[in-house]
Design a protein around this nucleic acid. Structure first.
Ligand SMILES: [Mn+2]
Ligand SMILES: [Mn+2]
Ligand SMILES: [Zn+2]
Ligand SMILES: [Zn+2]
Lengths: 137, 137
DNA sequence: GAATAAAATTGTAATCATTACAAATTTTCT
DNA sequence: AGAAAATTTGTAATGATTACAATTTTATTC
C-alpha cells in the first residue's frame, strides 16, 4: 500500500517526463511514510535535516506539481495553512480538538445529489469533522 | 427568517452587555441581507460606502465577537480567505467552479459515527462540495 | 449634565503562509 | 563536451489576518 503509492507516483512522474530528482523523491517518501497530513512547514523542517540544500519553494513547487498530476491532495480545512495528503481517493478527515491529530475516515454512500443539489454536477466532496478522538475521550 | 436572525443577534448582544453600535448593526444587516457567504474584504468594500469611517479591523473584531456568541459561522474551505455565514445551523456548501457561487444544501441523516469514527465524539461537521451548478450546466 | 471609567473603533505596523521571480545548479539532449 | 531545457534556490513581494496603542464613543457616577 505504502510502496504502491510511491511507485505509482514515480511511474507517473516518468510518464510526464518529470525527472526523479532528489527533492521530489524525498518529498514523496515523506508523504508516503508520515501519513499524518503534514504542512509544508513540517515537511521543510524534517526534510531539511537530511537534505540541507532543500528550499521551501521547492517543497511548494513539488507539492503543486504532484497535485497537478493527481498524486497529492491539498487540504484546505485549516484556517491558515494547507495540509497535504498522499491518499487521493475520496475520504473524510476528523480533527481531534484535544490531541490535534487528523484522522481519515471512509465516506459511505455514493451520495446521489438531491434536495438543493438536484441537477448539480458534484465533482469533489470534502468532509471535515471536528471533535474528540477515542483515545482522548 | 431574515428578520429573525437579526433580532436574535441583537437580543444576544444585549444579553452579553455588548452595545448595539453602528458598525455591529451594519455588519449584522449585511450578513442577514446578502447571504452569499461574503469575505471580510467584500463586506469592507460594500459597507465602507455607507459608513466611511468603518475600518477593516472592526469588521474582523465584530465577526469574531459574533462567532464567539455563536451568531456567525466562519467558513474555512477556501485556500486563503475566510467566509462568513449568518446561518449557524449545520448545512453543507457547494461551490460552482463556473460562476463561483456558493450554495447551501441540507445535510440529511443525523450520521451516527461508525467505521473509523466509532467511539469518536463528533462535535462539528463541515461539508464542502465542488462542481457545476444547475444554472451553469 | 459634566466628569470619569469602560468599551469600542481606528490606523498602522507586524505576522505568517504562500507566491513571484531571477539567478544558479542539475539534467537531458545533440 | 557543449548547448538547451528543466529544476532548484534565495530573496523579495503578496495578501489575509492580527497586534497594539491612540482615539472616539458609550456607559456610569456624582
Ligand atoms: Mn487523509
Ligand atoms: Mn451557508
Ligand atoms: Zn485526540
Ligand atoms: Zn454556477
Amino acid at each position: 500500500m505504502e510502496k504502491t503509492k510511491y511507485s505509482l507516483a514515480t511511474r507517473e512522474l516518468k510518464k510526464h517526463k518529470k525527472s526523479l530528482s532528489n527533492p521530489r523523491l524525498k518529498i514523496l517518501e515523506y508523504l508516503c511514510y508520515y501519513r499524518d497530513h503534514p504542512t509544508a512547514e513540517q515537511m521543510y523542517v524534517d526534510l531539511h535535516k537530511e537534505l540541507p540544500t532543500l528550499s521551501k519553494t521547492t517543497i511548494y513547487n513539488t507539492l503543486h506539481a504532484l497535485a497537478e498530476l493527481g498524486l497529492v491532495k491539498i487540504l484546505n480545512f485549516e484556517e491558515n495553512k494547507a495540509r497535504y495528503d498522499i491518499i487521493t481517493e475520496e475520504h473524510g478527515h476528523f480533527k481531534c480538538q484535544t490531541c490535534g491529530g487528523i484522522f481519515d475516515f471512509q465516506v459511505e454512500q455514493k451520495l446521489i445529489p438531491k434536495g438543493e443539489l438536484l441537477g448539480y454536477k458534484i465533482m469533489e466532496r470534502n468532509l471535515y469533522f471536528k471533535g474528540i478522538c477515542k483515545k482522548c475521550l
